[in-house]
Structures are given as C-alpha cells and as structure tokens.
Amino acid sequence: MTLVLAAILLVALLLLAGLFGPRVVRAAAPTLRRTPRLAVLAMLGTLAAWLAGVAAIGPMLAWRAMGHDVALSGPSGAVCRRCLAAADPWALGGGFDAVGPTVLLALPVLLLGAVVAVSMLVSSRGRAPALHEAGSALRRAGRARTVLGFRVTVVGDSHPVAYSLPARHCGIVISQRLIDEFSDDELLAVLTHENAHLRQKHHLVLALTGGIGRRLRWVPLITAIAEAVPHYLEIAADDAARRRTGTPALARALLKLGESGRTPAPAAPAPHAAPLALHAAGVDRIRHLTARRGSPGGTAAALALTGTALLLVGGAAVVHLPYALAVIAGCAQT
C-alpha cells in the first residue's frame, strides 16, 4: 500500500506541476531576473526533474506488478530478479510471471530519452542547413573585422542591427550603420552582449529547450519553460554588458536599437537570429536595468518552483537511485 500511495503522490505532483507550473514560472520572474544564469539553471533543472519523475512511474508500477519474478529464464532471469530485489525499497515480492509488466521497467525511460534525443536531432538537423547557408551568405556579403577587440562580420544595412549566430556560423554580426551611429561605449555594450551569448553557449541552451518544448508542447509547464528561457538568456547577456560598460551605455544602446524598429537580418534567417538579437529591447529590458529588486511574491514563487523541482527529484531518486546502486553493487554479475 505504501508503494501505491507513493505512486499516487508522484502522479499528483507531476500533474499539478505540469498544469499549474506556468503560473509559478511567471510569478517567479521578478526574482529570477535578478540572477538570470541561475534562473536558466532552475528552468533546466525543473524540466529535467519533471521528465525524471515521469520516467519513474513505470519502474515503480513494475515493482508492484511483478515483484522480483521477471519472466526470463537462465542467467539473465537470475540477474534481473537480483536487480529487482536489490533495487526495490519496499521489497514487495510476490508478483506474477509475465512478459508485459517487464517492459514497464524500461519503456518510460527509453521513451522519454527517445523524445529528448529525437527533439535535439530534429532541431539540430533543421537549424544546421539554414544556419550554414546564412553564415556563408553573411561571409560573402559582409566583411570580417575586429571592432573594439571583438571579431565580427560587418554587413551593409540602412538600420543599426546586431545579433549573433553560433560561432561556427559567423558569430557576431553588426551593420555598418550601427558602427557609424553608436558611441564607443554603446557599441562596446552591444558587442559585449552578443559575445556573452556566444561565450555562455546560449545557442545550445535554446536548441535544447526549444527542441523539447516543440515535442512536448502539450505540457503547459514545459511550454512555459521553453518560452521563459530566451528571456533570461537575454538578461544574462545584458548583465555581462552592464558589468563592463555600465547601465547608462547599455540602456542607450537598447533604446537606439529598439527605436530603429529593425529585426535581423538582411542575410540571416530571422527565426534563428531573433531570440539572440538586441532588437528585442523594450521597456521591460530597460526596467530590469534600472530596477534590480524582486518582489516578495516573486521570491515566494521562486521558492515554490525550487521546492517543486526538489520534490520531483526526490520522488524520481527513490526509484532510479536504487537501480543504479544495485548495478554498482554488482547485481549485474552472473
């Protein structure tokens, strides 16, 4: 009965987090914006904890369904029975001999792993040709230069624009108009912002959350996380620029880019460049630069988000960790 209750509690927590998590994610924003890189880690950790919790349901039910009587004969069957006996924290036993429940041990883990792997593969394969083509076009149309110590590609455009593609696909791209119109400190703020995207591997984070978010968009929590992560990555890049050039220079640069009304880019695929482009600057970004304090409500929501993730991790660890420890202890030895 203890196992049944634990399974019910885990499923209930997964449903509550999946359905009502977006409200917590939004409410926590005022506090999370203060530490954007930590916020991204919190988002990724919550995503991983929810997936691990879902993957734990199958093995937990398998303990209840078949105890330690795995329907395999010979040495393999003995190994599986020994692993189950060592891993089962409730030591139920007394299950029934059937092949069907055995599949429950691995199916959820394999299914979720396949979803994540396929999402990353499809996302990578879908983006790579477009990014390669964009990078090649930018190198042909623009010219490589070193501006204020940063290696960039300068393109011709009637508006000031700045964005970054992955380093192997051209990296930082700015327009000549931006160089002409921006002061040195404003230009340095823009370049530091875009370099932070490259240095902190923001493109990889977006590929991960975007790929999983598209495949599991029917889960509100995952959709909310996929939508929130780009926002925190932009703030993290803003903070890097602010630390180097100061808030006034960055704020002026953001305002100028926002006033231009120009989205990237003359030769680059906007869907890939837009999440990392300064053109997204607006009132919210300026407000973040000038008001650094979070609200009590935001702090409470951030704590609630952290607590939920820890509960999910704990619930998943109760199931996954005993299996890992059983294997480490040598149950796989025939």
Rank of each mutant, 00 (worst) to 15 (best):
L289Q: 09
A85G: 05
V4Q: 05
G95S: 07
V327Y: 03
P160A: 13
A274W: 08
L13Y: 08
L305Q: 10
L206T: 13
Y163A: 11
H279Q: 06
V116E: 09
D284C: 04
I328S: 10
R26Y: 01
R34M: 05
G282Y: 08
P101L: 09
G45E: 09
G135K: 06
G156R: 10
A106G: 09
E194L: 02
V318D: 01
F182V: 00
G18E: 04
R143Y: 07
L198E: 04
A241R: 00
G135C: 06
P269N: 07
A332F: 06
R139G: 07
I57S: 07
G149Q: 12
E194S: 05
D284N: 13
F182E: 00
L188P: 01
L191D: 03
P22A: 08
L105H: 07
T153E: 11
G21R: 04
P30E: 06
E133V: 11
L305W: 14
V99W: 14
Y232D: 02
A302G: 11
I8G: 10
L19P: 01
A304H: 01
A62D: 12
V161D: 14
P22V: 08
L32N: 12
L254C: 02
A300M: 11
A12F: 10
A237Q: 01
R292M: 13
T153D: 08
G294V: 10
P30N: 06
A265T: 10
L9Q: 10
V152M: 04
R242P: 00
A251C: 02
L9T: 01
G45R: 09
V54K: 01
G330N: 04
G171S: 08
A268S: 11
R262L: 00
V79S: 02
D69N: 04
G21N: 05
L138D: 05
R244F: 00
W50G: 00
A251R: 11
